[in-house]
């Protein structure tokens, strides 16, 4: 149990450091968001409002740095990430909460599918080399080698424009009201299929390749030969002895890729005009929307941390050697 306690403490410290850096960076950046906001609104905001805007953004110059820091933590615990400049005066937390589920839902599911499928295919072709299945390797590598935006555009051209099977953009039928009924969910799946397919195609090669190579390495380990010599059923040798050990590095990569789900899908969301968090971040960067950027960064950082915690624990459950003390 001490293993888990030590990991938890480690992650608490990491989270504290991440939040603190997130607090510091905008304050170290040149330029002043309030002046930027007033400049963008070109006289529509009275210059008398400057001081109140500063208070609103937490840039109250009367407060000391430490007071600001403590206030920042207080706001954070209440889920208050400040107000967005771009979508003024919508709170950042609202924007994040609106876009996060779309990204997590779509890319999350696509990543899990790619991982499971890729690992299974990698297990099979790593176990039995020299069959027709080896041909999957160059094909999948091709899809991950072409630039993603191009793959997305080709998918839209072929399946949305030429064949008209899928919509080319958006995340659900705009004529429907978002609710948890079958029609709406069906629409979400329908709109999400093409983006998800391209994400799976683009990322599956890495999983296949990684698993295949580990299977090849592990297959020549003595314990696999011993398992064969014991006369265990082939399935048991393949999954219990070879794949069970080969999957360990895959788990680490999977955790890392979970972290990237939140932040790393900007191109997909742009190509498919999907209303995810990557797109929000893109807008925030374009418009110098510091509170929104800060909020998105915080969410990304925390999700990477959570993914790492999960991976650490899954890894510890799968590999007894990492549980050792000291």
């Amino acid at each position: 149990m001490s293993f888990f306690r030590r990991r938890i403490i480690f992650y608490l410290i990491t989270a504290w450091a991440a939040v603190t850096i997130n607090f510091l960076i905008p304050r170290l950046m040149p330029g002043d968001p309030v002046t930027a906001l007033i400049a963008r609104n070109q006289g529509r905001i009275d210059s008398d409002a400057e001081q109140s805007l500063r208070v609103l953004f937490g840039l109250d110059s009367n407060q000391s740095f430490l007071e600001q820091y403590i206030d920042y933590w207080g706001l954070l615990f209440r889920g208050d990430l400040g107000l967005s400049f771009t979508f003024f005066p919508t709170p950042v937390s609202d924007i994040v909460w609106q876009s996060l589920p779309w990204t997590v839902g779509l890319v999350g599911i696509a990543t899990v599918i790619a991982f499971v499928l890729g690992t299974l295919v990698g297990t099979a072709i790593g176990w039995r080399r020299g069959t027709w299945a080896d041909g999957l390797l160059p094909i999948s590598t091709f899809f991950s080698a072409v630039p993603y935006f191009w793959l997305g555009l080709i998918a839209i051209t072929v399946f949305a424009v030429q064949l008209g099977w899928f919509p080319s953009n958006g995340s659900y039928d705009r004529s429907l009201l978002p609710s948890f009924d079958l029609e709406f969910l069906g629409s979400v799946l329908y709109y999400g299929f093409l983006p998800a397919l391209t994400v799976v195609l683009a990322s599956i090669a890495g999983w296949i390749l990684g698993m295949r190579n580990m299977m090849v390495t592990v297959s020549s380990e003595d314990y696999v030969t011993v398992a064969q010599a014991k006369g265990l059923p082939e399935r048991k040798v393949m999954f219990g002895y070879a794949a069970r050990n080969a999957i360990l590095p895959q788990i680490s990569s999977f955790a890392l890729s979970l972290g990237f789900i939140v932040g790393g899908t900007l191109i997909m969301e742009m190509v498919f005009s999907y209303q995810g968090i990557g797109y929000v971040l893109y807008q925030a960067v374009n418009t110098h929307d510091y509170p929104l950027m800060q909020g998105v960064f915080l969410v990304i950082t925390l999700s990477v941390l959570v993914a790492n915690i999960l991976a650490d624990f899954v890894y510890a459950a799968l590999d007894p050697r990492t549980r050792q003390e000291g």
């Binding site: 380990e221 003595d222 314990y223 030969t225 011993v226 398992a227 064969q228 010599a229 014991k230 006369g231 219990g240 002895y241 069970r244 050990n245 799968l318 590999d319 007894p320 050697r321």
Partner: peptide, 19 residues
């Protein structure tokens, strides 16, 4: 296998599944 002929391999270190 194992019923009739069992084998003890050279590498005592690697003959057991580590997990």
């Amino acid at each position: 296998r194992w019923q009739d002929v069992a084998i003890v391999f050279q590498g005592a270190m690697n003959s057991l599944n580590p997990v």
